[in-house]
Design a protein around this nucleic acid. Structure first.
Lengths: 201, 201
DNA sequence: GTCTATAGCTGGATAGAC
DNA sequence: GTCTATCCAGCTATAGAC
């Protein structure tokens, strides 16, 4: 058994995940990843055959994890506002770990949509859960707790308010003269702002 | 005078702008751009010296144009809600032309912030205008027309609601089974949704 | 499983002819 | 200003020894 205790494959994948998704070095080379993991570059090919395979594996796993957790919340039984609150918490947890998921989507998905078809295969019962959530949104509009509109717009608004600050970090660091720590604090504070913006009371 | 009527430089830059910013091919090579423009690849180096120079020129121009137009609206004399409405229109116009501005920011700005310092130099009177706009926001909160919060959060919310749908297009195409035309229609409809979400009435 | 050596390709950039 | 030819660096990937 090797010094790495047979965990080299796992080590490489974890390192790739960190570099691509957490640090956002989307153009990192196989050498960059191997160096960061402290292994020989050929091992990367030995375990994953190509950079492409490793890259896609990392994003597929992260996206599937996010989608699964979001759907867990969507499908849960609880009052609407509480559900949205949970959604915000789950989304923040995942985006804190993988803030560059959105960047990946913007960068690659428009260019080669066929290549990433499988990333968007509906989860078991996903269509149904989505339909129900949109119905819930409609009911809230009828009750007057949220602004009247197409339910799909509430949905997009919700995700815009959650996701955008993670994508646009560098702009606001400059614009408001913040440190990374200060911006993280702002992100946390924003949770309540998301709710108070979406809900009328 | 050449067949291109001495406009080769302009042609190359316009083509680069289209490929990078409109089509979002951020990793397009000098060959890709030359081909699309129908010129020899060396001409790109002749006029712009390097891919890097051309790339940065394109983004600097687009970002400066967007910032300038946004600040024109921020500095204008009109009722708050009307100002926000104008902001949405201006932003939509620019992002329709350059939907990948945000992607560029997410991809490059976090990695080499020093390199792009100049992109964020305050416009003449910019700091002042921003401060005043934040004060306007505070006044609206006091009046109760928008949700109570830190003014900066209203600001981020506004840009999140405007910008995010342009970044996340591929997700929602899949999620709601839309065509590009259908999504464009949704984007336009969203304008009113942005206002009704941000304003209490 | 892990290493060294090497092949092969792609892309940026420049020299020099026209 | 525009072209051809060429160089060079960087990166992926594999063969083969250990």
């Amino acid at each position: 058994m090797s010094v790495k205790d047979g965990k080299t494959e796992q080590l490489i994948k974890e390192t790739a995940k960190r570099i691509f998704l957490t640090e956002g070095k989307m153009l990192a080379t196989t050498q960059d990843i191997a160096d960061a993991a402290g292994v020989n570059r050929t091992l990367l090919h030995y375990y994953f055959r190509s950079r492409d395979v490793l890259f896609n594996m990392v994003f597929k796993e992260a996206l599937t994890k996010l989608r699964t957790r979001v759907h867990e919340v969507l499908g849960s039984e609880m009052p609407f506002k509480q559900k949205v609150e949970n959604l915000v918490n789950v989304f923040y947890e995942e985006l804190t770990e993988s803030p560059y998921l959105e960047t990946f989507i913007a960068l690659h998905l428009n260019q080669e949509p066929e290549k990433y078809e499988e990333l968007f295969i509906a989860l078991p019962g996903g269509r149904e859960r989505m339909k129900n959530f949109l119905k819930e949104i409609q009911r809230e509009m009828d009750k007057g707790t949220i602004a009247e509109n197409k339910p799909v717009n509430f949905f997009i608004n919700l995700f815009a308010l959650m996701a955008y600050p993670f994508v646009a970090r560098p702009i606001y660091l400059k614009m408001f003269d913040l440190t990374n720590a200060g911006y993280n604090k702002l992100l946390t504070e924003r949770k309540s702002s998301i709710l108070s913006t979406l809900f009328k009371n």
